[in-house]
Design a protein around this nucleic acid. Structure first.
Lengths: 205, 186
DNA sequence: GCTTTAAAAAGTAATGT
DNA sequence: ACATTACTTTTTAAAGC
């Protein structure tokens, strides 16, 4: 009767409020990350699809919203690492990662592995490295990945090592620490990937 | 050329059983040497055997989970030790409790490096999970046998979820032929 | 969903010398 | 620049929150 009708409206309002909250969170995080509006729109679509497929049950709205944004960045070719995403979200990295994998599987997003080259322009820009270094880094990534060196390695660490190597080759040296900071990986990872890459390239560093 | 099947090694066997008797874990924990029992943290009592090496989780209901054994024979041997220990504490244990193997974890080696990026596309992105930012292995779920395989860049792999040792052999056969069909092996 | 147990694979990370 | 320890993934049962 009237009670059921009120309940329906209450539920509808709650659902509407939750959706607004999720979309505003996506907007807030996207702004903090400085990604274009198109990414927010893709993230919104993914979130609405997850909502429609009832994938939010047992998960936090924020976790799904953050994961949708992470997936959208990758789909749009301007990936942010889970580390970077977690800095603008109040959801921890591990939870974002597992929620992303879940919605990715359930929605059949068919996400391709991140190409390390996608990180080169942004990282190099933050390090104020020239176009020449970027080109060299891309060359290193391209050639070594072809030889199978990329299998199982994190895209950020791989890109960081190539940028470090390229900065040395172009006489625009950045320290491992400087590159590690912008890529948010450790110096140890850069050192390990760098050694493999220069060996595969037949370069002596 | 080594047959990948010959490189299969069982790394862990998980099995469940029961003594058919309820237990007072508090007193078992007192009398059983080396027992770890913290009901606030976990309802099961942990008892470790040395030879063969394994860990048994003993519950109030009398049900027991054995994990860490390297073969099904070791599971039976470990549980025989656990049953005898309980009998020493004057606890009635059924004659030959049924032991059910729940999971077998196996490792193997395909003998050549793998291009996981190409394999991800080849096997179909909808059939795999490959997130190197989170984990270096590519996750491949098979329908028959019903197991999960983790493929690594080194060519080594882990097969888990199987209930019989042959499940791992069939899984390796299928994976090898699929990769060969795709021209992604060697 | 979480808690605990074991085990492998390989990458990354934190901490210590 | 090293090593060591520890955590990521997958699987599985158990009882209880």
């Amino acid at each position: 009767r009237l009670r059921k009708w009120q309940e329906r409206i209450r539920t509808k309002d709650a659902g509407e409020r939750n959706l607004q909250f999720a979309l505003s969170e996506i907007d807030r995080m996207a702004s903090a990350l400085g990604v274009p509006r198109s990414v927010r729109e893709v993230a919104s679509v993914i979130y609405r699809r997850a909502l429609k497929e009832d994938l939010i049950r047992g998960r936090s709205i924020e976790g799904v919203a953050t994961s949708a944004l992470y997936a959208a960045c990758r789909k749009e070719g301007i990936p942010r690492s889970l580390e970077e995403i977690s800095e603008v979200s109040r959801v921890e990295r591990k939870e974002i990662g597992r929620t992303y994998r879940y919605i990715s599987q359930e929605l059949g997003l068919e996400m391709r592995p991140v190409d390390p080259k996608k990180y080169v322009p942004r990282f190099c820009s933050e390090l104020e490295l020239s176009e020449e270094v970027q080109t060299k880094a891309n060359e290193i990534i391209e050639k070594t990945a072809e030889e199978g060196l990329l299998s199982g390695k994190s895209p950020t660490g791989y890109a960081a090592a190539a940028i470090y190597a390229a900065s040395l080759l172009c006489n625009e040296k950045k320290t491992q620490r400087e590159v590690a900071d912008v890529a948010q990986v450790t110096e140890v990872t850069i050192r390990n990937r760098y050694q493999e890459q220069i060996e595969a390239m037949g370069i002596h560093g | 050329m080594t047959d990948p099947k010959d490189t299969i090694n069982i790394e862990n066997v998980v099995a469940s059983t029961g003594i058919g008797q309820e237990l007072d874990l508090q007193s078992v924990a007192m009398d059983l040497e080396g027992a770890d029992y913290d009901p606030e943290q976990f309802p099961g009592l942990v008892y470790r055997t040395q030879n063969p090496k394994s860990a048994a989780l003993i519950f109030r209901s009398g049900k027991i989970v054995c994990t860490g054994a390297k073969s099904t024979d070791d599971v039976h041997e470990s549980l025989r030790i656990v049953f005898d220990k309980l009998r020493e504490l004057q606890i009635q244990v059924n004659e030959d409790p049924e032991i059910v193997v729940q999971n077998i974890v196996t490792s193997a080696d395909l003998g050549r490096n793998l291009n996981l990026n190409a394999i991800a596309i080849g096997l179909g992105l909808e059939n795999i999970e490959y997130e190197p930012e989170q984990f270096p292995g590519l996750v491949y779920r098979l329908d028959d046998p019903e197991v999960v395989a983790l493929l690594f860049g080194s060519g080594k792999l882990v097969i888990t979820g199987g209930k019989k040792p042959v499940d791992a052999e069939h899984a390796v056969d299928k994976i090898v032929s699929r990769l060969e069909d795709l021209g992604l092996l060697e």
